Amino acid sequence: MPWITGWFDARPYFGINFPIRRTQCIEHRLCQFCRQPLGRRIGLVVRPADITAGYVEEPAMHPECLDYAVAVCPMLNGATDQYRAAPPSAVAELVTATASRAGKPAEAYDAWYITPSGYEIAYSPDGSVLGISLDVPVLMKRPIRAAARPRLTDEQTALLRQVLDLEAVTFVESILDAPGDTPS
């Protein structure tokens, strides 16, 4: 269980982090997973939106903890293809950062590895911690998962089938698949 995971109503809510623990991890260079001080190699989980912002909101991890997180986290390993539709009402005010992703398809995730000398905290103009700067030397980058494809609504699917004339294709396939009607 990652140390920064939020607990509400006596159960963990993965993907929702305790804001105070998140800040503590970033400011004190602690692994978000095991809470131990970071070592010689530091792993960051980076999305395209993080690159655009110039920093990653999630605290860093040991490379081993990052590997374990990828193995067990459904968002990182691709078992989940979209973000939770809405956070529990009890935690809604704590998760403003993830609220914009609610119900949307999962983004691409990469692992970036940096050294302690490249670890820089990004601050907002009011002095609050934004995250870890990405404008630093990177030892290695590796893809973790590709972005999920957006799901089509029933209306979008019907329109696509109509535009591509897939009803005719389905009709021909059903004829070809009928017993005893195998083309020679």
Rank of each mutant, 00 (worst) to 15 (best):
A85E: 11
I114K: 03
P143D: 10
A158C: 04
P48V: 01
F18Q: 10
L160Q: 14
P183I: 00
K141V: 12
R29S: 13
C73A: 12
A178H: 10
E107D: 14
A53C: 00
L152C: 08
E155P: 01
S100E: 08
E64T: 07
W7T: 10
A111M: 10
P143H: 10
C25N: 08
M1N: 01
G118P: 06
L164S: 09
G118K: 02
C65L: 06
H28Q: 15
V163F: 07
V70T: 15
P179D: 08
T115D: 07
I20M: 08
R149F: 13
A111I: 02
D110K: 08
G131W: 00
G54W: 00
G118Y: 01
T153W: 07
Y119H: 11
L76S: 05
P137R: 02
I175K: 09
A111Y: 06
V138M: 06
E155N: 08
A86I: 06
L152I: 10
P74S: 11
P125E: 07
P63S: 10
H28E: 14
I4R: 00
V163A: 12
P125Y: 03
R21E: 11
T52I: 13
Y113V: 10
A86L: 08
V72Q: 06
C31L: 03
D177C: 00
A158F: 08
R40Q: 13
A158D: 15
L166I: 04
A86T: 03
I175W: 04
D154A: 15
D50Y: 03
F18L: 05
G15Q: 06
N77K: 05
F33H: 13
A97K: 05
A102Q: 04
V91C: 15
L134F: 03
G78N: 09
G15S: 09
S133K: 14
R149Q: 15
N77G: 02
E64R: 09
P137Q: 05
R145K: 12
P88V: 02
A158G: 06
N77E: 04
R22D: 01
I42A: 06
L44C: 07
R84N: 02
D9W: 05
V91F: 09
A10N: 13
A71H: 13
P125R: 05
A53F: 00
Q24T: 10
Y119K: 13
S89C: 01
V56W: 02
P48S: 04
M140P: 01
L176Y: 01
P150C: 02
E57D: 08
L164E: 11
S128P: 06
D67S: 15
N77W: 05
L30V: 05
K104V: 01
R11C: 15
V95C: 07
T96K: 12
I144W: 00
R142H: 07
A99Q: 12
I144D: 05
P37E: 00
V163T: 12
C65D: 10
W112Y: 14
Q82T: 04
E58S: 13
A53W: 01
P19V: 07
E58Y: 05
A60I: 03
L134W: 01
I26M: 00
E58N: 14
R145M: 04
V129N: 04
R11L: 15
K141F: 00
L30E: 11
D67I: 04
A92K: 03
Q156K: 09
A178S: 14
P2D: 15
C25R: 07
A10Q: 13
M140G: 04
F8R: 13
L160K: 11
L76R: 07
G43R: 09
K104H: 11
A122N: 08
